Computed example of a mutant assay.
Amino acid sequence: MLLSALQAGWLSSLLSRTGSTAWSLPALKTRDKGTISKTQQIITHLRKQKYNADYDLSATQGADTLAFVSLLEEKLLPVLIHTFWVDAKNYVEHTRKWYAETVPFPLNFFLPNCMHKRHVERLQLLWGDGYMEDEEKLEKELYRDARECLTLLSQRLGSQKFFFGDSPASLDALVFSRLAPLLKAKLPNGKLQQHLKSLQNLCNYCTSILSLYFPWDGGDPPAGAPRPVGAEGGEAEEEPHKRRNQLLSVVVGLAAMLAYAFLSGIVSIQRGSAGPAARQPIAMEEEEEEEEE
């Protein structure tokens, strides 16, 4: 119990110090409210800042948005969680490996397993007690519903550039956030991925958004891309803080490992006696030397 509390406190401390947002995604870092990590709170915050992608939508289009959002959350999201976090082959060979290589030390040793456990518990809450009784049957039903959801999205999109014409709306952002990882990830077990790849207009849709809004595909921006004013100075100022955070992470990691070693009994401290018994072997050696003389 004490060890679990130590580990939880340690992870929380490291996350706050390193500024990591991997524990809760999506995340938006703001100047006045810190980091916002819930989707609806992010949308509400952006709308207050006059960023509203649904401003020009009609009432019918707004109703369609709500219907498709509900469909995605109910039919597609649970299967995506299962695909990336519960399927043993995908989790071990892709998801855990990716997080372990991306998340800074020492979080990469603990964070993927914590997230895995949290997602498994989430699916158990969504699927109920039947999840443990007949997992194989339930999995088939859920994957069938997810394939139907993708087919409906494909039919609704048709040959359009976005779901409501030539401009993206909040539905486009949500659909892209669900489909792009599934399309681009190199999954060893890609049952749902294969169905998505068979829907050519959805594949073209994701590829088009990537080329429009992520032209460098997550890498370094092109040489001609504009850089924020004072970016170089900001990097120089952040370097000492970055090193300090890394040092703190290592120190806290070592402290946690030592605490675990002491609590589990792997390491113990024994005090040697300084009494007569401890000096007895020396006295015996002196006696032997006298006898020899």
Score class of each variant (00 low, 15 high):
residue 90 N to M: 06
residue 105 F to Y: 14
residue 92 V to G: 01
residue 36 I to N: 03
residue 285 E to T: 11
residue 194 Q to D: 08
residue 5 A to K: 12
residue 18 T to D: 06
residue 131 Y to I: 07
residue 174 L to P: 02
residue 110 F to H: 09
residue 88 A to I: 10
residue 132 M to T: 15
residue 112 P to K: 05
residue 210 L to C: 05
residue 31 R to A: 14
residue 172 D to R: 04
residue 118 R to V: 02
residue 233 G to L: 13
residue 93 E to H: 11
residue 226 P to D: 03
residue 29 K to C: 08
residue 176 F to Q: 06
residue 112 P to N: 04
residue 205 Y to D: 01
residue 236 A to H: 11
residue 130 G to E: 15
residue 207 T to G: 01
residue 276 P to K: 15
residue 24 S to M: 10
residue 270 Q to H: 12
residue 286 E to W: 13
residue 278 A to E: 12
residue 184 K to H: 13
residue 187 L to N: 03
residue 265 G to T: 00
residue 264 S to F: 03
residue 209 I to F: 00
residue 242 K to Q: 14
residue 201 N to C: 01
residue 78 P to L: 09
residue 90 N to G: 06
residue 50 K to D: 14
residue 75 K to N: 15
residue 111 L to G: 01
residue 68 F to M: 13
residue 5 A to T: 10
residue 149 C to I: 06
residue 113 N to H: 09
residue 9 G to H: 04
residue 156 R to D: 01
residue 181 P to C: 04
residue 292 E to S: 12
residue 230 G to M: 06
residue 53 A to T: 00
residue 177 S to W: 02
residue 154 S to T: 01
residue 197 K to W: 00
residue 247 L to V: 08
residue 226 P to S: 03
residue 44 T to R: 09
residue 60 T to D: 13
residue 26 P to G: 03
residue 61 Q to D: 12
residue 259 A to K: 05
residue 247 L to W: 13
residue 215 P to M: 05
residue 85 W to M: 12
